[in-house]
């Protein structure tokens, strides 16, 4: 199964709707509760990051019997220092993002904690690509 979603930067009223759809699809697959939660938390953190930092983005999720691979591409400022961005507490979030309960520099570390693999590519001034994979077995 493949799911693709457009994500609008800055639109917090819609943030998480793609993750919610994917969660519903995963619940149909009779997967372990903890696996679903790890997947959903990872995707949601990444989706919120696009809403918080980018102009727009796409999320594509490929699900098969072995696991899920989610690719998130955004058009945005990019990440100048990925190593720093992976450090808990490092944040460039705006006050508005913080008002929504995010922007504490915990998103990328939490994705890494929950995913079996996380790859980040970023070009400053162009955008960022995250590839998140979680194995079902």
């Amino acid at each position: 199964m493949t799911f693709t979603y457009e994500i609008e930067g800055g639109n917090f009223s819609r943030a998480g709707s793609a993750s919610s759809d994917i969660k519903k699809a995963l619940k149909q697959l009779d997967l372990d509760y903890n696996i679903i939660k790890r997947v959903v938390v990872s995707i949601y953190e990444a989706e919120v990051n696009i809403v918080a930092h980018a102009r727009r983005g796409t999320l594509t999720a490929d699900i098969d019997a072995d696991g899920i691979v989610v690719v998130l591409d955004d058009e945005g400022p990019g990440i100048p220092d990925i190593e720093a961005a992976m450090t808990t507490g490092f944040s460039t979030a705006s006050p508005r993002v913080r008002e929504m309960g995010f922007g504490a520099g915990m998103g990328l570390p939490n994705i890494k904690k929950n995913a079996d693999s996380l790859h980040i590519q970023s070009t400053v001034g162009v955008g960022t690509r995250l590839e998140i994979a979680v194995n079902f077995k």
Binding site: F12, A15, S20, E99, M100, G101
Partner: peptide, 11 residues
């Protein structure tokens, strides 16, 4: 706000 509920859903 809406993300309070969305976060609860994910968690």
């Amino acid at each position: 706000n809406i993300q309070t509920i969305r976060t609860a859903e994910m968690a």
